[in-house]
Design a protein around this nucleic acid. Structure first.
Lengths: 343, 343
DNA sequence: GTCCGCCATCGAACCGGTTCGACGAAGGAG
DNA sequence: CTCCTTCGTCGAACCGGTTCGATGGCGGAC
């Protein structure tokens, strides 16, 4: 079942078989047919390991994501799916690598043992040692998200700052004056996760611009935390009439918390944020939100990585996406009937 | 940066380096130290491709899941995460393969090109050509789910029949007499997806046992379909007071449909089913459901696969899980106030 | 002092492909 | 008829590890 066996049965040399299959040198029509026939007969496929060893490319890309400790969110799922699909279109396989730190064993495997030709990094931090490490080695990679200093590197990302700003302006336009921000978990914020930081920046900036009274919260990635977070918000400032969130996984909990506090969405309270559309459509009322185009980001990341692999000297490229807010049903004008507004 | 370089710098032969690092033959303490020092200095790591070629094992397992066309559900995400994590603990990498059919290009890559040592199959069908193909080749694999004839093969799975039966009995015990079943999409049922079939069987069987009046529905994997499905249910039989579902992704839509029809959960209408706990807890009221232990299934699948790889002649093993129903807040006694019950 | 055995190390072959340089036959130009 | 190309094919080297059999040096037993 190796190339020598094919060569013998076809009555030619191993190199001829190789050339016939790769087309890298001309082979006479007769021999080509003969070889192809033997190959088809035996169902021969060249060994990926041998090929990788010989030409130094594995035809595999690594997808590096954080360890499972914190739950995966729906966004991450969509990324993974679209990356795999896009990679398959370019004839690349995808190797999953759960990796937190730079010194990580799994990360070392990918790079040190040369298991992959390139890597896609998820869940980028503003100061990201994995990204720094890859840049240092000049290892082909594309980040999903951008670090504090993205110059000279390849990435695709969402303009979280602008997105959250748009959410705040949307609420301010509706007349909301007291707004809360529900961020990702505190440990992620402290670790420097890009979306958490830039989202928070955008929130603070836009709130200042519009002269809003705001509070910001961190919230665990699950329903119970979301519910608790709403309780904190309404306890800290019962006059709050709206919130903006980046936290997809807490969304259901946020809604539950509001319902239990007797706040009707959107009549008494508006909710918006940055969330993948399939999750925005799951809650009732459906969430008015900047839809995260996770699948598109995944596809673009693969496009960029393949370009970088094909042209090692190409100048860095990136894509910064700013999807519009999809108006659904979770936001409305402030100052409608609210029980505790008229004591 | 290859083993020859290490050997030269340490003043020994390549084989000695190999033995020093693998420990497969004794090496004097002095040489071992010298070699280790050079290795550390240069940060040497043996090439995975070369090693795979030499000893015929890639230290990689393939995770085969259906193409992205149909959305991924939360369950699948949890599987992927836990499989990757469990595999890492055994020093295996995970290669993702989107694969529908047996003749699939991607599937051929995995097997034909020997990219992986073994495979884990997700989304098993009762008659599954991928599973048959693997069994025929005697290729080490573990299925998540079991085919119609699982004898002699390795698998982990959920007893969907028993789980759905438990749901039906729970509803019947509460006095519900007219119950609907919301299954996965019709195309998946027709394709023979195991969970859809066994779940339906369990539903039909238990309903007959308890003498219930039932209807069964297929429902797309998204919120809009769920909402539409509830409309169909209430149109077909307005006296329906409960439903059982396997369809995680439609859950939010089911709730919305009920709310829009003026049915309060759980006062007017009970909802239950088989759903991962994190999703059951997202909706309000939280779903009483048999919690799918996706992470545990993933881990067990890896355990079994590794065992099979280590002991090629071991007899087939499997794990059939039947998690209990978690009582939450979405079911209640039938026959409470219902507007259209008293015209 | 000689012989035996063990331990540590080495050299060579092998895994299964790719690729380069060379070589022989056929065909065209002179 | 010879010379020079061109085309198709072959053999050998190489990618970077692993593994087997062989070899050399040393110490202990007699």
């Amino acid at each position: 079942m190796n190339i020598g066996e094919i060569a013998r049965r076809a009555g030619v040399s191993r190199s001829t078989v190789s050339y016939a299959l790769s087309g890298k040198r001309p082979v006479s029509e007769d021999t080509r047919r003969k070889i192809q026939q033997v190959v088809d007969e035996l169902g021969y496929r060249p060994s990926a390991s041998a090929r990788a060893l010989a030409n130094g490319r594995t035809s595999t890309i690594g997808l590096v994501f954080p360890p499972a400790g914190n739950h995966y969110t729906g966004m991450q799922l969509d990324f993974i799916g679209s990356v795999v699909e896009a990679a398959a279109a370019y004839d690349y396989d995808v190797l999953l690598s759960p990796s937190g730190m730079d010194s990580d064993r799994s990360f070392q495997r990918l790079l040190g043992e040369r298991r992959v030709d390139g890597a896609i990094l998820m869940e980028i931090r503003l100061e990201d040692d994995r990204a720094d490490h890859l840049a240092e080695l000049d290892f082909p990679s594309v980040a999903i998200g951008r670090t504090a200093h993205p110059e000279g590197s390849w990435w695709v990302g969402l303009d979280h700052t602008a997105l959250v700003q748009a959410c705040v302006h949307h609420l301010a336009d509706l007349g909301h004056r007291r707004v809360a921000f529900v961020n990702r978990p505190e440990q992620l914020l402290r670790a420097g996760y890009e979306s958490a930081h830039r989202g928070l920046d955008g929130f603070t900036k836009a709130a200042a611009e519009r002269g809003l009274t705001v509070r910001t919260y961190c919230c665990g990635d699950d329903a119970a935390s979301g519910q608790g977070c709403v309780e904190r918000i309404l306890h800290d400032d019962p006059a709050t009439t709206a919130l903006v969130t980046l936290n997809e996984a807490a969304l259901g909990g946020l809604y539950r918390g509001l319902a239990q506090a007797g706040r009707h969405v959107p009549r008494d309270f508006s909710v918006t944020g940055v969330v993948a559309s399939r999750w925005a459509e799951t809650v009732t009322p459906q969430l008015t939100a900047a839809d995260v185009p996770a699948a598109e980001l995944g596809r673009l990341a693969v496009d960029l990585l393949v370009e970088r692999l094909d042209h090692p000297d190409a100048p860095p490229r990136h894509h910064l996406l700013t999807p519009p807010i999809s108006l659904r049903a979770s936001t409305g004008p402030a100052g409608a009937t609210r029980s505790d507004a008229t004591p």
